[in-house]
């Protein structure tokens, strides 16, 4: 199975929508790789520079209702081609969350207090994901462990490498 985790990018805002993650004008690209330069281009977050801040990151940590708005799976693909494999947030919009699992990627929900703790670890934070155990280890200036629950079906989708593989085998 795919490995999950990496250095964390902290996006300290709720309701980050898929138009901010990948503006609609780029939805005319016909390959996923062509989306790469435009990731988070319209994110409304003071001081954020996608090119500088996204370098070497594998995990995004954010607040509530991440990925709301449009159904565009481009918002997941643009993370995938930028080597982001996991998003951790207080909550997700339904379609974005489903798109992540459908692509075999992780959308992990944690309680607000855990998210707050993640934001306050200090320094460059690296997140390790132990999927079978349902455990996250985050190491910054301080280290913290968190447990998470994955819907059993979402777990199967990740193991299958996505919904198309799973559906082709079962239906």
């Amino acid at each position: 199975m795919k490995q999950f985790g990496g250095q964390a990018l902290f996006l300290d805002r709720s309701d980050i929508n898929t138009d901010e993650i990948i503006p609609a004008k780029y939805l005319t690209e016909n390959t996923k790789m062509d989306l790469k330069p435009y990731v988070l281009e319209d994110l409304k977050l003071g001081g954020f520079d996608p090119k500088r801040d996204l370098a070497d990151k594998g995990v995004i940590v954010s607040r509530a209702n991440f990925g709301c708005g449009s159904s565009r799976e481009h918002a997941v693909w643009v993370f995938e081609v930028n080597e982001i494999n996991t998003v951790i947030a207080e909550s997700f919009a339904r379609i974005f969350r489903q798109n992540m699992y459908n692509c075999g990627m992780l959308a992990i929900e944690l309680p607000a207090a855990d998210i707050e703790q993640l934001f306050n670890l200090g320094g460059e934070v690296t997140v390790e994901v132990d999927l079978p155990a349902g455990k996250l280890t985050a190491k910054g200036e301080r280290t913290a462990e968190f447990s998470f629950n994955l819907n059993d079906f979402d777990r199967r989708l990740v193991a299958a490498g996505g919904w198309l593989n799973y559906a082709d085998k079962h239906y």
Binding site: S70, R72, E73, I95, Q98, N102, C103, Y171
Partner: peptide, 28 residues
């Protein structure tokens, strides 16, 4: 398309989905 929920006006269950859901819908 996220605004697929429009069609619920007819007493249908209509939901917006991503491309992979669409792809499986087309195929299966």
């Amino acid at each position: 398309d996220s605004h697929t929920c429009t069609h619920g006006a007819f007493g249908a269950f209509a939901a917006g989905v991503g491309t992979t859901d669409l792809e499986v819908g087309i195929l299966k």
